[in-house]
Simulated assay, not measured.
Amino acid sequence: MRQRTGRLLGPLLVLLLVGAGPDGSGETVSLDGDRPGERLDVTLTRVVDPAGRADSERLVAVELRLENTGSVPYEDSPAPAAHLLDTAGQRFTGTAAATGAGPSLPDTVTLAPGDSASGFVTFRVPAGAGLAAVQFALDAGLGDDVGHWSLS
């Protein structure tokens, strides 16, 4: 299931729940940034698991498509804006590390209104970890508006 969290209003966090496919892929979430006119449509295109091995960890790569649907340029670092949650409740921050899954999103993405970019964000997770969800927020992951794709 896909979730979109709204702005934090006092202690109340508003959640909008919408159904998604079993791997969360193909679903688009519209996210507002902190600046007026900042809006991005984010699509989880696919999940590659495993995308490689690193020591006792495995690499998981998620392909994201970012489209600037706002009225101002979007410039941000997508890797730290992405998080992978495992079934034990641990949260892993994305990196721009290369894998055989495909090209990574660049360290910094700059999109004029109407432009889009696609690429992978990589996560290092324990070898036996079960995958639960992917999250993405603007403003290097610190934005109040959070896209959530369930992977189970």
Rank of each mutant, 00 (worst) to 15 (best):
V18H: 08
D32C: 00
R39A: 15
P106N: 04
L40E: 01
L59S: 00
L64N: 06
G33P: 06
S30P: 01
P36Q: 10
L17G: 13
A96Y: 00
R91L: 08
V72C: 02
E38L: 14
T99Y: 01
S104K: 05
A98W: 00
E27M: 10
R39F: 06
E57I: 00
L64P: 03
A101S: 15
V48P: 00
R46C: 07
E27V: 15
V72H: 03
D107Y: 01
V60K: 01
S71V: 09
P50E: 09
T69G: 09
A61L: 02
D41V: 12
A82N: 07
A82S: 13
S71M: 01
L40S: 04
G94N: 08
L40R: 05
T43C: 10
V48L: 02
D86F: 07
T69Y: 03
G70T: 10
A54H: 04
E75P: 05
V62H: 00
G52C: 12
A79R: 12
A96F: 05
G89Q: 08
D86S: 07
D32Y: 05
V48F: 01
E67V: 14
A82T: 14
A81W: 00
G33F: 07
L59E: 11
G37E: 08
G94A: 11
G24C: 12
L44V: 08
A51C: 07
D86M: 11
L59V: 06
R91E: 15
Y74W: 12
A96G: 13
G100E: 13
R46V: 03
P50M: 02
L17N: 11
G24R: 05
G70F: 10
T99H: 03
R46G: 13
S56F: 06
L44K: 07
S104D: 04
G102P: 12
P106K: 07
P106C: 00
E27C: 06
P73A: 15
L59I: 03
A82P: 09
G94S: 11
V47G: 09
E57M: 10
L44F: 02
L66Y: 05
A20C: 13
N68L: 12
R39V: 02
T28D: 08
T28R: 13
F92M: 03
R58M: 11
E57D: 09
P103G: 04
Y74E: 09
H83M: 04
S104V: 13
G19R: 12
A79S: 13
N68V: 10
L64Y: 14
R35A: 14
E63G: 13
D107N: 09
T43N: 02
P36Y: 02
A98R: 13
G33R: 10
N68A: 11
T43Q: 09
S30L: 15
A51R: 00
T45A: 15
S25L: 09
L66R: 05
S30T: 15
G21P: 11
G94D: 09
P73C: 11
T87F: 00
V62W: 02
G37Q: 09
D86N: 12
D107P: 09
V109S: 06
A54R: 15
A82D: 02
D34A: 14
V18Y: 02
R65H: 10
G26I: 14
P36A: 13
G52E: 06
L31C: 03
A20E: 08
D107L: 07
A61N: 03
V47W: 07
T99G: 07
S77C: 05
A61K: 04
D55F: 14
R53F: 14
T69C: 03
T108G: 12
E75Y: 05
S71E: 13
S71Q: 14
P103N: 04
